Simulated assay, not measured.
Amino acid sequence: MSKMIAPVRWLLALSILMLGWTAGALAQTSQPVCAQEAREQAQRLLDFHVGGDDRIFIEPDVVEKAPLRNPANPKQQFQVLEVRGMILKGQYRMRLIYYRLEDSCVLMGQEILEHASL
Rank of each mutant, 00 (worst) to 15 (best):
F57M: 04
G24V: 09
S104Y: 02
V33A: 14
Q43R: 10
L107I: 09
E37S: 15
A66T: 10
P7M: 14
T22N: 05
R84L: 07
A13M: 11
Q79M: 14
P60V: 04
R44C: 00
Q43A: 08
A6F: 13
Q31H: 03
V62P: 08
H115M: 07
E82W: 08
G20K: 03
D47F: 04
L45D: 04
E59P: 00
P74D: 14
E59I: 00
E37D: 13
V106L: 14
W10E: 15
Y99A: 15
Y92C: 05
L19Q: 08
R39K: 15
N73S: 11
M4N: 08
R100M: 14
T29G: 06
Q110I: 04
A25R: 07
Q91A: 06
Y92L: 05
Q76H: 07
R44D: 02
M86P: 00
R69V: 08
K75L: 14
T22A: 14
L88S: 07
G24C: 07
Q77F: 05
D47C: 00
L14A: 14
D61K: 09
L14W: 12
M108A: 14
I56K: 01
V63D: 05
K65S: 06
D61S: 11
R100V: 11
D47S: 12
Q43C: 01
R9P: 01
D54C: 00
L113N: 09
L107W: 03
Q76S: 09
L88V: 02
S15P: 03
V50E: 01
S2G: 10
Y98C: 03
K3W: 15
Q41A: 13
P7W: 14
Q43P: 02
V8D: 13
I112W: 02
Y99F: 15
K75S: 14
I97Y: 04
G20Q: 09
G24A: 15
D103I: 09
A35V: 04
A27G: 03
I87N: 00
I58K: 00
H49P: 00
L113V: 10
Q31R: 07
I87H: 01
K75M: 09
D103T: 12
E114Y: 02
Q28E: 12
G85Y: 02
K89R: 13
I97A: 04
L12R: 08
L113K: 09
Q91P: 00
R9G: 13
L12F: 09
D54R: 01
E64V: 08
L19G: 13
I5R: 05
R69Y: 11
A72K: 11
V80E: 04
P74R: 09
L14M: 15
V80C: 05
V83P: 02
V106W: 00
I56S: 01
Q110H: 10
V8C: 11
V62T: 08
E102Y: 05
L11T: 07
Q110C: 04
G20I: 14
D47P: 01
V83Q: 03
K65H: 10
L68A: 10
P74T: 08
R93M: 10
G24T: 09
S2N: 10
V62L: 12
E102I: 06
A38I: 05
A13Y: 12
L45G: 00
R9F: 15
I16M: 14
L96W: 06
E114W: 03
D103M: 05
S117H: 09
P74V: 07
M18F: 10
L19S: 12
Q41V: 06
R39E: 05
V106G: 03
